[in-house]
Design a protein around this nucleic acid. Structure first.
Length: 466
RNA sequence: GCUCCCAUCGUCUAGCGGUCCAGGACGUCGCCCUCUCAAGGCGAAAACACGAGUUCGAUUCUCGUUGGGAGUACCA
């Protein structure tokens, strides 16, 4: 029977790096084994869930190309089902109503802590067996077993054992009538026939309680896989302050979705010495059982390297729309200049992100806005510069076909005619076209400006020569 | 505090008792190439946290220490 996995974020914020990797692993596991991948939105926290966050998660999934077979399923639309299951548990004597106020619970914990014990609910109403009554503090609690222990074989952590005496009677239904996370996940995972639960490390502690719930409900316990955390570059937990940015922020910063996916898949998992994985390759090679057990740090430099790798190897035509998007965000009108594909070819070996590329492409879409005076002094100052520019102007003006190749030949011919090295021609020309002494190869730099504009810029530069 | 988890180059990792004076990748440094900057090629520096065991033999197994992390909610 094909596996069924799910990604179950709570809509209390955007889709961040850690969530994205969890989603990726769930997706990969389902795809590799020909199973189904379900997206479920865990929105039972009415205080913190927002529609904007739901949308942000959906957008992030879409951008990354992590398609789901079912969902998004919203827990708040399944309220009747939770009540039904809760009632069943109550009738079976596996749950009970409790009426402590939050203050009383807090005091109970504080007292336990003071005794050096684990802060937990003392099961007061479990013993009391009080009848149901309307009460603002009324919650439904689960009768967790007192004895024995819960053992599970985690796909990444291995065997984990928990003594039941460490666990207390968790709340199933809150006083506001909404189910708690631990209850809703179990009900949902059973109903949705999830047999492989892949989630963050921070859920290991909940697992034994959930397993007890599975038992109480007479359901088969799924296989669990708890992923280690992704830490910030400084080794600290990812937080709003550092690194935990939305995956969509990576798009804005100029990263490609498949580069991010490739980076993420290798964070905590490896396949021999392979670093580069296409989608198909990661699907074929991924193995949840081979995931690392220790936390890893997010390294932007390596992401940058991967991103450039894809910039260099992807079809420029496929990248063009994304570059256009970035150009527009930089306030550049792409229609006014060279074809984006040509810009990509000229710049992809020089930048790591599309954002950088867009910024550096500005010189071909808009007039020179600032001259690097040092470059002007160094390359336009001498007498040779003037002669070089005059000669190259002539050669370029004579071209009937305007291609990087033709432009390159015209420049080489100029150097040959003057009996000087390429540098004597290329550098003054580079400054003339771009106003700076750094740019892509000279033939691309000139080619991208267009014949008319290139010649015009040489004329302008001529006025600046000494 | 208590419970659980983790520990190989700066970073991501390979390693599943001898083939490891520990391999790959990013980053760093050097050289080459060169019209600038890159990209590319070649090369270098760089790690088994510590201490006990087990064993003929531990990076690999066990325990402890230290150091990280997670949870300890009517948040997920």
């Amino acid at each position: 029977m094909p596996v069924r996995t799910r990604f179950a974020p709570s809509p209390t914020g955007y889709l961040h790096i850690g969530g994205a990797r969890t989603a990726l692993y769930c997706w990969l596991e389902a795809r590799r084994r020909g199973g189904a991948f379900v997206l479920r939105i865990e929105d039972t926290d009415r205080e913190r869930s927002t529609d904007a966050a739901v949308q942000a998660i959906l957008d992030g999934m879409a951008w990354l190309g992590l398609d789901y077979d079912e969902g998004p399923i919203f827990q708040t639309r399944r309220m009747a089902r939770y009540s039904e299951v809760a009632r069943g548990l109550l009738e079976a004597g596996k749950a009970y109503w409790a009426y402590e106020s939050k203050e009383e619970i807090d005091a109970m914990r504080a007292a336990a802590m003071a005794r050096g014990e684990k802060p937990r609910y003392d099961g007061h109403y479990r013993e009391l067996g009080a009848a149901y009554r309307e009460d603002p503090n009324r919650v439904l609690r689960f009768k967790n077993p007192h004895d024995g222990s819960v053992v599970f074989d985690d796909a990444v952590k291995g065997r984990v054992e928990w003594r039941n005496e460490e666990l207390d009677d968790l709340v199933l239904i809150r006083s506001d009538g909404y189910p708690t996370y631990n209850f809703a996940v179990v009900v949902d995972d059973i109903d949705m026939r999830i047999d492989e639960v892949i989630r963050g490390d921070d859920h290991v502690n909940n697992t034994p309680r959930q397993i007890n719930l599975y038992h109480a409900l007479g359901a088969a316990v799924p296989r669990f896989a708890h992923l280690p955390m992704i830490l910030g570059a400084d080794g600290q937990k990812l937080s709003k302050r550092h690194g935990a940015v939305s995956v969509m922020q990576y798009r804005e910063d100029g990263f490609l979705p498949h580069a991010l996916l490739n980076y993420l898949v290798r964070l905590g998992w490896s396949h021999g010495d392979q670093e580069i994985f296409s989608r198909a390759e990661m699907i074929a090679a991924f193995d949840i059982g081979a995931v690392n057990q220790s936390a890893s740090r997010f390294d932007l430099a390596k992401l940058g390297w991967l991103n450039q790798h894809y910039l260099k190897t992807d079809d420029p035509a496929a990248l063009a729309p994304e570059l256009v998007w970035h150009l527009q965000r930089c306030g550049i009108e792409p229609a006014q200049g060279p074809a984006p594909e040509d810009v990509i070819v000229a710049l992809r070996e020089r930048v790591q992100t599309l954002k950088e590329m867009a910024m550096r492409a500005r010189i071909w879409y808009a007039p020179i806005s600032a001259w690097d005076e040092q470059a002007v002094a160094k390359h336009l100052g001498g007498a040779g510069a003037r002669a070089a520019l005059l000669a190259v102007h002539t050669h370029l003006a004579a071209l009937t076909a305007w291609t990087p190749g033709q432009v390159g030949e015209a420049i080489s011919a100029t150097a040959a005619a003057l009996g000087v090295g390429m540098g004597k021609i290329a550098q003054p020309l580079r400054v003339a076209i771009t106003g700076s002494q750094v740019s892509p190869s000279i033939e691309h730099t000139v080619y991208l400006a267009g014949q008319r504009e290139a010649l015009r810029r040489i004329d302008v530069a001529l006025a600046r020569t000494g």
